[in-house]
Computed example of a mutant assay.
Amino acid sequence: MTTRTPENTATDQAATECEPLRALLRDALLAGDEYTAADLLFTALDGGLTAEQALLDVIAPVQAEVGLGWAANRLTVAQEHVATAMNDRIIAALAHRSPPPAEQRGRITVACVEGEWHALPARLLAETLRLRGWRVDFLGAQAPTPHLIAHLHQTGPDLVALSSSLPTRLPTAHAAVTACQGAGVPVLAGGAAFGADGRYARLLGADGWAPDARAAAEVIEEGLGMPAGAAAHEPVDDLPHLADQEYTMVSRGRARLVRETVDGLADRFPALRDYSRRRRERTAEDIAHIVDFLATALYVDDDELFTAFLTWTAGILDARGVPARSLVPTLELLAEPLRDFPRATRLLHRGGDALAALPHPTGPGKPA
């Protein structure tokens, strides 16, 4: 049971009061009208809305709605990209309109892990921390770990906030966490990749976790430091199951697994041979995503990460009129070259069970 505090109640009330503004902003973004979208927020700021509320109670939930719209096939990829780009520019304009306090509290580096291109959640955190008086170095999307560490040595921040939205970035995030700690800087992890409950942040040894920008700012204000006696270590020290090399073998064999699975599907479903080059490439891309999530699930040794991805994918396919049963033969074909890998075999079997439990039948069908 969650205890409601006066601060929680005030935040919930403010979020509810912002609902009409969120609806107007969403409509403006989906219409491609950036100037109206910006004017809506600036007028609200003049009327008493705080800059933090604009970021976290208006822009953030609208961006989440846009993502859900894409997943439900109500919005195209292009519409989602346009809305995201407009939100990013509006955040920049808002930052210049709302300067941070003159007296700063400390220095924080905010970055997306290497390979992570979803920068808006990290941007929201960076601007929230600035408004609260922190000096923030925002490194943006896809920050290579060596460059991140070089920046830490040059600037000596009090903390690093690492963001990742895609679970497939967890191995890279783990390397970044251990490298930052090796440089003597504590790490706060955030973003959907680390799990709704922060389980992967804890598993990978991060010093703290927060589910969103407001919670992250509060965790930082409470104080987050390195444990006494913390020492540099390797990822395998946190995840001893990596010693079986299954993650390494699957990730290094990715191209071969994808190629062999595509060929196997063509043998089972001759119609695939008549696919256009572009459609065949899309099929290979879909299989590559499955292999990537399989490898990541092996890295963290978590069945739920793989099964959740498969059921989410099934929902995406269903929204686009593609039967989820098309995933089943893919799992069967992947299981053949991985039959001597016990953890991978377990994950593939659990994935098949999860698909079989969906409301729609998942018997043999055409490939996606």
Rank of each mutant, 00 (worst) to 15 (best):
L29R: 12
R320Y: 08
V110I: 14
G48I: 01
A143W: 00
R339C: 07
R259S: 13
S163K: 00
V160P: 01
P167S: 14
E336K: 14
P20A: 05
E19W: 02
E80S: 09
Q181R: 15
L49P: 07
R4I: 14
R268D: 11
R132Q: 13
H153F: 10
A231Y: 04
T145L: 09
L265T: 10
V113T: 15
A71G: 07
L272Q: 10
T109L: 15
R214I: 01
A196W: 10
T168A: 13
P367H: 08
H96P: 00
T307W: 04
A189N: 05
I287T: 01
G48D: 02
A368C: 00
V136K: 03
A255P: 03
V110Q: 04
A288H: 05
D88R: 12
A255L: 05
D12Q: 13
D301T: 06
A78R: 10
A83P: 04
T155K: 08
R278Q: 12
E218I: 06
T172K: 01
A189D: 02
G205Y: 09
S98W: 01
R277P: 04
F42I: 09
T84S: 15
H151E: 10
E65F: 05
G363I: 12
A28G: 08
Q53C: 12
R105D: 03
G223Y: 01
M86E: 10
P146D: 06
Q79D: 12
R350S: 15
R105G: 02
Q181M: 08
A255Y: 01
R343W: 12
V77I: 15
G315V: 07
Y200H: 11
Q245E: 10
A216K: 03
L358P: 02
T11G: 03
